[in-house]
Structures are given as C-alpha cells and as structure tokens.
Amino acid sequence: MFEAKFEDGGLFKKIVEAIKELVKNVNLEANGTGISLQAMDTSHVALVALQLNEKGFKKYRCEKSLTMGLSIENLQKILKCSGNDDQITLRTQDEEPTTLSFTFESKNRISEFQLNLMSLDQEQLGVPDTEYSSVVRMPSNEFTKICRELGNINEAIGIETSKEGIKFYVKGDIGEGQVSVKINDTEKPEERVECEVDEPVNLSFAVRYFNLFNKASALSSQVILSMSQDQPLVIEYIIEEMGSLKLYLAPKIND
C-alpha cells in the first residue's frame, strides 16, 4: 500500500514540467523515506535525479518499496486534468502495481484518474557523494537568463570560477561574450550570490540542456551549481520542505 499526498499539487506539476523535455520514461521509486527518481536523457549526457522526503507530504505511507515505471508524457496528460491549487494524492494498493491512482482535490471538486504503468529495465547509475571544488549559489532566474542569452550566441557555454565569482562565456562563429556574476551578500536570500571555490574550474557544456532544465527555476528562487574540473556539473533546485531536483550534466572536454 502506497499513498503520498501533495499539499501543493502545483509543485508536483512544476517538477514534471521541468523534466519532461529531458527524460521520457522513468522509474518512480517509493519507499519508507520518500519518493525518488533517476533517469538519463536518451543521449546519456544528462541525468535527472529527484528526491522527495516523506516528511514533506501532507500524508505519506509506503509499507513496501515500490518501483513504478511511467511515461512522463502520459503522466503530464493526467496532471493536465488537475488545477495548480489542487491537492494531489498518488496511491496504489498492490505490491506489483500495474496502475497508479491520482486524486485531485480542490474546494469544489474531486477527480480520480488511473495511469497505466510499464515495466522499465533502466540501468541506475550510482552517483557517489562528491566533494565539489567549486560551489556557486545564485538566483535561478539570473542563471536562466544568462543561459538563454549566451545560448543564442553559441551552443556551448563555458563556466569559469574563481575567488571573485563565476564567469559564463561563449565563443561562437558570430563572435564571443562573457558574463561575470559578482558575489553579493545581500540580506535578501533570493538575490544572494555565493561562491565557495577551493579549486577554480573551467568547464564547457552544451547549453541546450541548461535551457531545457531551467523550467525548474519555478521551483526555487535559488540554484546551486556544483563543479569539479572534468566532472559532471550538478544543477540543484532545492524544493522547500520536500527535497531537491538535480540535473547532472556531463562536460564537453577539449581533446
């Protein structure tokens, strides 16, 4: 028996919205500690990892660990039948569920849906806990804007960290550009820019993955970029009181 009730169903919709362009079919894992999801995009350049802790739910029960394979596209079709202010409950009775039930509750209506599940034998990558040599915390809409703007100039975006801060740069056929974001310790947390740089990094990434993933900035006003030289970068959106949504992106490396 599994049941998880989102107080704020809109949050669940934003999470699905953020990952739907990156991953197609995913295994949703549920156990006593909460719900998690890990899936790669088709080209294996990006890995999406979601972690939602049971304490963040209005109601949460999971007697036995469950794996529910689902199509993000079909999940979205079901979620489109819910309102952004609905409470959303996920539920299944069986130990080997073939469907996942959804209840959408608002003050004037209650809806029930069943999503057919599928069995997906996806390899799960083991992402080790890593000490990153550069960790930058900045406003998520600022990061989104920089990626979108520089992405118009070149499909690869460079990220360079130093004690002074973080610099994004592009060198394309039409020309080049760079954006240096200054550290600031304003008292408004959502505008703060913090850099912990033990070792500076200089990395290059395909910016289209950032642009696909930055829909997640609706989840949090801040984004955390964790980097080490020649390692995948982690973009993390903290989901208040619930957990986090992470995008791991493999770097482009100079041959």
């Binding site: 294996h44 350049v45 890995l47 799960q124 083991g126 290059s204 493999a250 490396i253 041959d255």
Partner: peptide
C-alpha cells in the same frame, strides 16, 4: 575541438 562526454563514463551502473 571539444568532445561531449556521457554520464556512464563518470558514474557506474549500480
């Protein structure tokens, strides 16, 4: 020029 790496190179299948 730059070559795009993939995740499998960094993280192991569990």
């Amino acid at each position: 020029d730059y070559s795009q790496y993939v995740m499998d190179r960094f993280y192991l299948d569990e």
